[in-house]
């Protein structure tokens, strides 16, 4: 298991990187964290002629949080995003999802933007971006474009990044209102790709009645699936909501595939169970300002570190 030969490029600046990517076109691939790409190369499942290593572009190693959300640069490692206190306060779903990305050592190297470009339907960050309605900024020689999550993922392991293009950042908008979030998975082993994962966001009104309930799924669809489940929960409070009905609705709307770890039927069952669990936790978080929902209604004091704390 040794990678095939390739030409290596290590640009010192973004313009230089874009120049190189433009020159190598279809035959080029961006190397960021490499935690998904290099196993594929080692197994010789891919053989790009050129690798453009952006690990020298330290100007892209940023996590910037403002009133509207969190912008993550192409060279920000998962671990950096996970540990970023401002990002966590603004978009706690980020840390909730990141702690489930493989293991800490992988998160030390792997990049959040890279995992989006990899577009693995089992990738946690694809679900986070999709649920939040975030976007990815793509740059190429002579221009940039911003692609929303709904258009960014085009198929299993396929994103809309074109030859010559490079994802330079991802944007995770802050959820508005009194909103709580949760990210849970059922995986065979801790750190494995999930058999099913659910990112949930529940928004409450000032009377703590549910006004919106949405969930994004991984491992049950070829591209990240976002479901609006509000119809089953609207008007209920976290105490009275019929979570199971929301789970049933979600299960009805998913068509998972089977693989060696889980049958389609079991995955759909997990959608049912995990949806109910995730929505309930998200709603409870949204209702309790001390726990810290994403929304404007919550204050900053209660980062749920105890439950979602970064390790390592």
């Amino acid at each position: 298991m040794k990678p095939p030969a390739f030409r290596y490029h290590s640009p010192r600046s973004l313009p230089e990187a874009l120049d190189t990517l433009d020159a190598v076109g279809h035959d080029g691939k961006v190397l960021a964290g490499g935690q998904s790409l290099i196993p594929i190369l080692n197994m010789r499942l891919a053989a790009p002629g050129h690798l453009v290593d952006i690990n020298g572009l330290t100007e892209l190693a940023y996590v910037r949080t403002d009133a509207d959300g969190v912008r993550v640069g192409a060279l920000a490692r998962h671990a950096d995003v996970e540990a970023d206190a401002d990002a966590h306060r603004a978009v706690s779903l980020l840390r909730q999802g990141l702690r489930l990305v493989a293991h800490p050592v992988i998160r030390n190297r792997g990049t959040t933007v890279g995992s989006l470009v990899h577009a693995d339907p089992s990738g946690e960050m694809t679900a986070v971006l999709s649920l939040l309605g975030g976007s990815v900024e793509l740059a190429r020689l002579g221009g940039t474009r911003r692609v929303g999550a709904a258009d960014f993922f085009t198929g299993p392991l396929e994103s809309c990044v074109e030859p010559g293009e490079m994802a330079v950042s991802a944007y995770f908008p802050r959820l508005r209102g009194r909103t709580g979030t949760e990210f849970i998975e059922a995986a065979r082993r801790h750190g494995d790709y999930a058999m099913c994962g659910v990112a949930a966001a529940v928004t409450l009104d000032d009377d703590l009645r549910i006004v919106s309930a949405r969930a994004a799924y991984l491992s049950v669809s070829p591209v990240p699936l976002v479901l609006d489940l509000t119809e089953t929960l609207a008007g209920a409070t976290p105490d009275t909501a019929h979570w199971r009905a929301a789970g049933e609705l979600a299960a009805d709307r998913t068509e998972p595939d089977s693989d060696i770890h889980a049958t389609a039927e079991y995955r759909r069952h997990l959608v049912r169970v995990l949806t109910a669990r995730a929505l309930r936790t998200a709603a409870v978080r949204g209702a309790d300002p001390a726990v810290g929902g994403d929304g404007q209604g919550s204050d900053d004091q209660g980062s749920d570190d105890r439950e979602c704390g970064a390790r390592d």
């Binding site: 065979r188 082993r189 801790h190 750190g191 494995d192 790709y193 060696i260 770890h261």
Partner: peptide, 16 residues
């Protein structure tokens, strides 16, 4: 053999 890797042949980690 569909699971000829450590990703899919699931040896227990400490967590299991």
């Amino acid at each position: 053999l569909l699971n000829a890797s450590f990703m899919d042949f699931l040896m227990p980690y400490a967590s299991e």
